[in-house]
Design a protein around this nucleic acid. Structure first.
Lengths: 343, 343
DNA sequence: TTGTAGGCGTTATCAT
DNA sequence: ATGATAACGCCTACAA
């Protein structure tokens, strides 16, 4: 099968004895073109099987109508919902979404940023890799006035759009909930403290304890690197081996919270009576585990949509170019299931 | 902040008193350019902050180095793993991945196909929407010799690359497993029979029953539309209300299998003694539910990788342009957990 | 080994 | 209301 050549506006122009400018305008309903011509052009374009060449238009206008997304890995419930939201909002605005995964590697993130930059994306949405500390590879976007939105895992010190939840308050609420259920020794599964979503959750945890006059025991705070199922098991094991084990766990994600429940059950520890557990994210597994995992809900799809909308509106209104630092906080809620219901 | 203009090969040429062709070639290590010039050009390019304009190159070469992906919805375990695999293979080959969701709507799928076509993607990977029956909107890719790979939810009658599992044999194996556990009345949760992944699973189920001389009871076959948690509950309810309820369920996905387990437990039905259950996909929830859900494993990431590789190799070797019908089957396995272990 | 020139398809500017 | 022309940045025959 031969590759038939694409029909271009030249071909239409030839056929209709018009100029390419007229065709180009007619196809975009330009007001200076007569109704009749517009109709004729569109009809002929249709008949000839014309498809606009986005590439050429992009080159000409230096605009790609593409949003680049930089995330750790797609196949995690929170991230895939996030992307879903981005895609929905982007599509509504006529934008495409191009995805790159860092797999939580700093070097991959740097490379991907470069790739996106080179492909002239109109805007970038990023949730930082676990490893990332230095964020200078994002400066290139700022320099070229390409709107950049950080989502969820945002940097502390980079002035741009940010869409996130109030992790401090979520951590506080989660801990407070356990305290209200009568927990006195609450352990915390903490993520990498380089990612402030985790350090903030921990800060909320600490402050809640303080506020309720409970002692802070550093031995009850476990620092994770990957926050995997396996890490959760190990941590739970260690905690339960303590002379004075915890009676509650506030975990920074659902994966490790679920593993804690499973492991504790295996050891005969009663959930929630002897150990109350609350997680974070409301992943699907949280409602499947028995007892149901109390958790903090995240509006993941909404976050994606919001992030994409920030980009679209920035691109639409080129006035506010300078020094954008806009932080959008989305609401979280404590979702109480059986794993923490003691009273 | 002003948008600084991009550095082009013209700028480099000017600075080095060379022609643009030399620059262009030097940047790509063309053999006809001297080592010295290459080094000099690259150094200057680096210093001037040159970034190749993929757009211009694509327009010129009529190649975009982009793979378009058309799926139902990203935020499902199987799909997000699939995409992850695609992205990994694409990145390895220097390709970008652009994602569109149909949300299982036929119309959206048609629109997305058009969008991808217009953006001149180099290749397309698609898993069909639930609704899709007519697949003529994919013909445009074939006509332009754009490699098209269907994954998982493939059409019956469209001759192109397909990467999938042997759903018939998987359905057969799952049912056989239940039979071997002593089940006599096995129900089947079937998906839309327009999607042959589901009709094949059902065919495997039927044939296994036949092979073991078990009667086929149409009342035990439940046809789902969305295969959601809720649908699973309702179906389970109805089945358990029967005078002669089933003693086993083979479900076409894990979501409904899990809901069956939860609902049956709620009604006091013992799993697996009174009701053995096996699902499909090995979603994360399947190992969280208690008892653990037996299921059919899918190599989702591998499927994505394989699909992307088909495209890359097709693009690399333009010889085999005509009439490609290549079906790749990936292996499945019965993963036995507690939900079906009776002996 | 390097240079010249034309074109990829579209659109904006300036004419008519 | 329509047309001519140049430009977006890169690549590649062909020429030197």
């Amino acid at each position: 099968m031969k590759d038939k050549k694409d029909v271009t506006i030249y071909d239409i122009a030839d056929k209709l004895k018009l100029s390419t400018s007229t065709i180009s305008r007619a196809l975009k309903d330009h007001h200076s073109i007569s109704e009749k011509t517009i109709k004729k052009v569109k009809k002929t374009a249709e008949e000839m099987g014309y498809r606009p060449n986005t590439l050429a238009a992009s080159l000409r206008s230096n605009k790609t109508k593409t949003i680049g997304v930089l995330i750790s890995r797609i196949n995690r419930p929170f991230i895939s919902s996030l992307i879903s939201g981005i895609e929905i909002a982007a599509q509504k605005g006529g934008y495409n979404v191009i995805i790159t995964q860092s797999h939580d590697s700093y070097q991959d993130e740097v490379n991907n940023a470069k790739t996106l930059y080179n492909s002239r994306v109109s805007g970038v949405i990023c949730s930082l890799a676990m490893e990332t500390i230095d964020t200078s590879h994002f400066q290139q976007f700022i320099d070229k006035n390409i709107p950049l939105v950080f989502v969820d895992r945002v940097p502390k010190d980079f002035d741009t759009y940010r869409v996130m939840i109030d992790n401090y308050s979520a951590g506080y609420k989660a801990t407070k909930h356990l305290i209200e259920q009568g927990c006195k020794r609450i352990a915390h599964f903490a993520g990498s403290q380089f990612r402030n979503i985790y350090s903030e959750r921990k800060r909320g945890y600490i402050d809640a304890l303080k506020h309720y006059n409970l002692p802070i025991d550093e031995n009850l705070i476990v620092y994770f690197t990957t926050m995997s199922f396996h890490e959760g098991e190990k941590a739970t094991n260690n905690l339960l081996d303590m002379q004075n084990p915890p009676d509650g766990i506030f975990s920074s994600n659902d994966t490790t919270a679920v593993s804690a429940i499973q492991y504790a059950k295996k050891r005969g520890v009663k959930i929630p009576q002897e150990l109350a557990v609350i997680g974070f994210n409301n992943d699907p597994i949280s409602q499947i585990i028995d007892p149901g995992l109390s958790t903090i809900t995240h509006p993941a799809v909404k976050m994606g949509q919001t992030a994409a909308e920030k980009i679209l509106s920035h691109l639409k209104d080129p006035s506010n170019k300078d020094e954008i630092t806009e932080i959008t906080f989305l609401n979280t809620e404590v979702l109480v299931r059986e794993s923490s219901k003691r009273i």
